[in-house]
Amino acid sequence: MANPISRTWRKLFYQDGGCHFQLPKVDSAFPEPPNEGPFGDAGPQALGWFNRLTNNGRVATPFFYTIIGVILAILTVLEVWLFTLSDDFGAFFVPMMLLLAIAKFVIVVAFFMHLRFDKNLLSLVFASGFLLAIAVFMIVLSVQDKVNPSPLIAP
């Protein structure tokens, strides 16, 4: 019970009464109970970890960055491993790969490039360029019939 993983596990999946998720005990003294929701206080608790590692979201520690680096490495290994199984996934392969790439992209941008810690304006600037690129080039690809290529052999 003391270890945080089992504690989080219990918070997430412990059945209490007839519900699938643990519902917070509502007391008349607390008309608006904190951390209401399906995940209990798992979110704030994770945030607590995040804040401890990053000095309340300002400057992170080398340890924090190393964890991020390890996560990125794991994602890359996962990507290559899934690639070796690509035939098993059929149509799901491409979206899965893209999701993993987006995850890596977002992690690098948010933590290594400090957008998570910086002014929101910088996120806006970068996102506008990046999302615009995705939008217009997706239009180009769809107009050029490259998103869902039509069958090459005409009937």
């Binding site: 600037v125 970068f126 615009l132 690129a133 080039f137 180009v140 690809l141």
Partner: peptide, 26 residues
């Protein structure tokens, strides 16, 4: 720093064009 981020946003379009070219010619 602001200049750098505007430059990076701009560079997104630069690499976006090259990647789009690659994909159009896949």
């Amino acid at each position: 720093k602001l200049l750098m981020w505007v430059f990076l946003a701009s560079d997104c379009l630069f690499f976006g064009s090259f990647i789009a070219t690659y994909l159009v010619y896949r």
